[in-house]
Every structure is written in C-alpha cells, then in structure tokens.
Design a protein around this nucleic acid. Sequence first.
DNA 1: TTAAATAAATGTCATTTTTACAATTAATTT
DNA 2: AAATTAATTGTAAAAATGACATTTATTTAA
Lengths: 256, 256
Amino acid sequence: MPRKFSLLIPSLLNFSPFFPRCMTKYQNQTRILVAVDCVVFGFDGQKLKLLLIKRGIEPERNKWSLMGGFVEPNESADQAAIRILKKLTGLEGVYLEQFQTYSDSERDPIERTVSIAYFALIDINLYETQISEEYHPEWFPLNKVPDLIFDHNQMMAMAKEKLRYKAALHPILFELLPPKFTLPLLQSLFEDVYETSFDKRNFSRKILSTGLLLKQKDKDKENSKKGAFYYKLDKKHYQKNFHKFLHFIPNPNGLI
Amino acid sequence: MPRKFSLLIPSLLNFSPFFPRCMTKYQNQTRILVAVDCVVFGFDGQKLKLLLIKRGIEPERNKWSLMGGFVEPNESADQAAIRILKKLTGLEGVYLEQFQTYSDSERDPIERTVSIAYFALIDINLYETQISEEYHPEWFPLNKVPDLIFDHNQMMAMAKEKLRYKAALHPILFELLPPKFTLPLLQSLFEDVYETSFDKRNFSRKILSTGLLLKQKDKDKENSKKGAFYYKLDKKHYQKNFHKFLHFIPNPNGLI
DNA sequence: TTAAATAAATGTCATTTTTACAATTAATTT
DNA sequence: AAATTAATTGTAAAAATGACATTTATTTAA
C-alpha cells in the first residue's frame, strides 16, 4: 500500500496561532534551493557567442560558468531570470525562454539545488561591458566555450540544441540582430547557427516569403562596395505569426 | 552596485566540524518545496483523455487535480515523476517529458512550491484501475476536464499545446496506442488531438511515407466488416528517426 | 445464393514548395 | 575607363501537398 502523497496532506496544525512560525505547512518534506541559470546568446556579425562569467572564489575558482542565482522569496523563476539577466547585461525586455529544469540531486556539490535553465537572445550591440565587471563576463564563440562548472556544459549543449530547433521553425534569430539588418548578415547568422551554408537565392526567397521583413531605403555600405539594403522586422506581423510554423529551415534534419 | 550572487558565495564555515549539522552551505537563501506534476494522456480508441485524481481532504476537497508529489531528497525530478506515475498507473517505461516548471510564488496557497510539470503518454489498455483506487483517478475527455486546483488548469492547457506541437513533427502519438493498431485508429487519434478531420488518402500516404510502420498480415475485424490491417512500429527506425522532423501535419498552423 | 451495406484501401492530377544552379547589377578601387 | 567585389535577381526540374472518387473485402439481409 503506497504512502499517501504529502502534497495532499497539509498540516492543519499550522492554523494554530501557537504553532511556531518557523514550521511550514507541508510536513516532513525536504525544501531545496531553487536557482535559475541563463545561457546568454549573442551574435557579433561573425559568430554566435555565449556570455560566461568567471568564478572568483573557491570552489571551482577560475572556472567559467553560466550566469545564475537563487530564486528569491517573492519572485517567480521568470522574474529571477529577468533580474539576473539585467544584472549581467544591463538589458531589459530581452527574449528569454525557460527550456529545462535540472534537478539531479548531486548536480551542485555544495548543496542540493534545482536549477531552472533559460536561454536569452540579446542584441550584442546593446551589451555594455562595464555594467557587470564584477563577474568578469566574456563572450565565447560556441566552438571555443571552455569547460564549465557543475552541469553547465550540459545546459549549454541543450540550449544550443533548443535554439537550433526553434530557429528552424520560428523567427527567433532576429532577436540576436539590431533593429536594422541586411540579408547577408541574417544569412551569416543562420549559417553560423546551423554550421552550414545556404544558397543565397533560396535563402532570401524563403525569408522574404514569410512577409516578416520590411525593406528599407538605405543600405549598409560598411561591408561591401555595392552595399546591401537594410531590412526591419514588421513588428505586427512578427508578433502575430511568431508561434506559427514558418519553416525557416525547410529540411533541418541532419542540422539538428 | 549590485549584490554579489549568493550562488557564488558558499559559506566556508560549513567545513568546520563544530558547525551545526542543520545549517546548510549556501547561507541566507530560501529553500523551497519542489514537486512534480504529471499530465497523463490516454486514448481509448475514441477520445484523447486525461487522468485526474480527486482530492479527498481539505483544502480544495472534492476538487480534481493532476497527479503530483514532492521531489524526495535523493531523487531527481525525472525519478520523482517516474515514481509518481508508477504509483498512479502501475506503469513503468512510459513516455514522459518535462515540459515546464511553474514557480509563481503564490501558486500553492498552502506553502510556496515550485512544480516541475511533465506530460505522460500511456497505452490506456495497460492502465489498471485498481492500482491507485486510493486517489480515485478518473479519465476525462479533453473537452470535459473539470476545474482543477492551483495552476493545474494552466498546466493542462500547456501540456495539450505541447502535445499538439510535438505530435505535428515527431511520432509521439504512437505512445498512446497498443503495439498493434490500424490506420483508421491512428487517424482517429490524430483527428481527436487536432480537433479536425483529415483526408484518408493523404493521411495514410503521409504516415506510410515515414517508413515507420510495418504492415502486419492480420486484420482488426472488430470495427468493420472488411477489417483493417494492423500495423506495428518499426522500432529501430522509430528510435533512429524520433528526433527528426517528420512533419506529420504538413501545415499545422491554425491547428496549434 | 444473391444483393445490399459497410468501411477499408487505393490512384491521379493540379498546385505549391523545394532544390539546384548562373547571370546581372551597383558601387568602389585601380 | 576597367577591374573588382559582393548584392541582387530568375528559372526549370523535382518533390510534396491538397483535392477529389472508385474499387475491394467482408458481413448481413433478402
């Protein structure tokens, strides 16, 4: 005969005014530290990069890690992730998505901690280094990410996988670009994310057929003689169609 | 100047043998109850259904809820979900997927609890009622699910969404069927999941083109005069191609 | 036994989407 | 004015999709 679930048995004793305040209402249950960790992606025009911080203290001194922190008493994990991301990058309103919760009982050697992992996509141009010098953050290209603490390697690998998966179907990679961008830049971003190359003609046809982009009248003249037209996201169309399957990568098998 | 993250500051005091055992190593942090909740799907041949349990005690007595329980000291959330699912259904080795962690500080009125939500797909034929009579479980068709406790309505809605999303791209709905099934049965499952109807010819062409199904020599004679051939999953092909995009639902927009 | 009824199985054509592939254009540099 | 560079654009074949009806196997009723 299985034990009843404790979830179903809150202690009625707690309603007594004489009951010590430090006792909580579900009895005989283990309370666990809950943290969030953020896998922060950025794109510098050449490579997809990850923002990491360096631990200044023991244990694991000088090892790199994802940016994280504990969930505080009156905030949700989403709010904690937003707070932590702001602390690291100075940015608010960035694309942030919860992708997996890590709960192995041994994952943090100091004390058991459940970590709710998020990935963030930021416009790297808006990132200002000085804001978080305290944490010695650095950007690493994905193929040069150092060994990370705890299970952060695994988190990073899964975040990358989720990014590839989602970007094949939904217009999330635009979150990594500045408000005005060119098609060649967009293509190089996709190519770096999927570690492959696409045919220019097919790529632009696919992208433009979504109707998400508005061609601008001015060009980027920095990167070529001819110059490439800028595009902007059609914000309304973008928000409306974000959750639709857009199939940016028609046949992503083998790439994901 | 922002405070340092506590994650980075484990207390060295803990290494002292004189330090009280009840103190933990990350100081001044709030520990929180961590639970898992399972959204259990089954298909009875007609309708997609959800397995719910009825609370026998206050508060929220007589209200329905998802099956859940606290994560225990030496288990991961995955292990907790497996344990709880076995307690409810008697089944092991079922398809189980973590889909979202709910952490609103007010989500459980008794005491703050973070819940890691899973959805499970089971072959309803293997489910044996008597195993968990303790919880008064019942199957509900998706359109007749009663009001649930806490944020379980939200969990259920998101689980349904994730199921639809994933089933459009990957062969997960087979997990709801017995080892031998007919194409008409499979189609009625897809139709119920997406609340729509598909053309028989196009549906079977699409399904068979994946190469996942092996036609059997015998027929199901229960549901029609002519009888419909049984199919089985090609296990090797299934495992190999599970994560590929198979596009079962070619244009799922509007359905998801 | 024959006919009627039922649901399963199957095929084709038009349309759309995808893939593969190369020439032209705009601007700068020599 | 010619050469260079990278952006822009088009087309045809192949594959996938969507729309649509007839044939087949079997049981039941006449």
